[in-house]
Amino acid sequence: MFGLFSKKQRECPIDTNTRLWMEQAFVWLVQEFGENNLRTKPMLFPTTEYFPFPYDGTKGSFIQTAHIIARQMEIDLQMINLDLYNESVQEIQSDYGFRMFTQPDENSDSPLTAGLYFGKNETGQFDVFIEKNNLKDPEKLVAIIAHEFAHIKLLGEKRVSFNDESLTDLTTVLFGIGVFNANCAFREIKNFDTRGHSTLGYLKQREWGYALALYAYFRQENNPGWVHHLTPNIRSDFKKSSAYIYGNTDKIFREKYNPGH
């Protein structure tokens, strides 16, 4: 397969502690959400086949997008108070004592939030709010909604007792939405008057590549066709990670993560 798994490419692109944490977290997520579910659930891709409506950046399109993501993540959208806010903020105090969790967007000198998760409100619904400017970018919008909905799967369904943003990012991979979050992790901005980059989420670019490689390995997809949906930089990290995994199958999911070392 074009040297994908050649010995020259068997060095892991992420550090050992991060690799071991990710593999252990992945196993835990599979135990929580079901091995058969992971192996058989179709992935979502940025095509009209999976989002069969004309996206126009309106609140209506936003809700339609949220319905698809909620179904993919096995969440009843009626259990969510889903809305938009106009200004990204660093901290919001809830009248009901709920703690806020944010997903930063670092495409500015002062990082701003992209989405907010509050937990359940007084009506029993989960409060989830998305920064309005994200409606301009449908792929980024999917990634943000998926991350905030992942808080519901972990915190809202009481699978964890404390917030872990990296685990929340990884959860999107388990539900087949990782292509969106990975692609938005790092974007280069190049046009006639602008040079720079934007970032989204908590896992780093190479970590997304490894997470998706673990996902493909677990699903026994040696050369998945969905790789062409990845941006070039994520695709490169995915291939390097896959090369490492298939060159070290005796280690994958077998070594124990020890945060003290």
Rank of each mutant, 00 (worst) to 15 (best):
P259I: 08
I252H: 10
G209Y: 12
L82N: 05
D56M: 09
Q9S: 07
A150I: 10
K140W: 03
A213C: 10
L212H: 05
I252R: 03
Y55D: 06
G34T: 14
I145N: 00
G201D: 03
H228A: 11
E131H: 12
I152V: 15
L203E: 08
E35S: 15
F126A: 09
F26R: 09
G247S: 05
F45T: 08
T16D: 04
S61N: 04
I130W: 08
H151M: 13
H197R: 00
Y210H: 05
N183K: 01
S88W: 03
T199V: 13
A114G: 15
E207I: 09
R206F: 11
G115E: 10
F186Y: 15
D76F: 05
K239S: 13
N233A: 14
Y215W: 14
L200I: 01
T172G: 07
E87K: 11
G178H: 07
L116P: 02
N121L: 09
Y96F: 14
P13E: 00
S108Y: 02
I80C: 14
A143E: 01
D237S: 13
Y117I: 06
P259H: 05
T102F: 10
A243N: 09
E11D: 11
N86T: 08
G225K: 13
H67Y: 12
D250H: 12
R219G: 09
F149I: 07
A25E: 15
K8D: 08
F186L: 15
P52C: 12
R71E: 14
E207P: 01
Q93N: 05
G209F: 06
F186V: 08
A143R: 00
P259G: 04
P232A: 13
I152G: 02
E207K: 04
W28P: 00
I245R: 03
P54F: 15
N36I: 10
S6E: 14
L82P: 06
G196I: 00
E207Q: 14
G247E: 05
L154I: 14
K59M: 12
I245C: 10
I189S: 00
V173Y: 13
F192W: 06
G196M: 01
T18A: 09
H151P: 04
A211G: 04
H197M: 02
S61F: 11
P54A: 14
G247R: 03
G97I: 03
L203P: 00
L174M: 15
D137R: 00
P52N: 07
S198R: 04
N183V: 01
F101Y: 14
D164T: 01
P46F: 08
Q125W: 02
I144C: 03
R10Y: 10
R99P: 00
F253R: 02
M73N: 01
I189Y: 01
Y246R: 13
E49Y: 04
G247H: 14
D83N: 15
S108M: 03
G156I: 14
Q90C: 03
C184G: 00
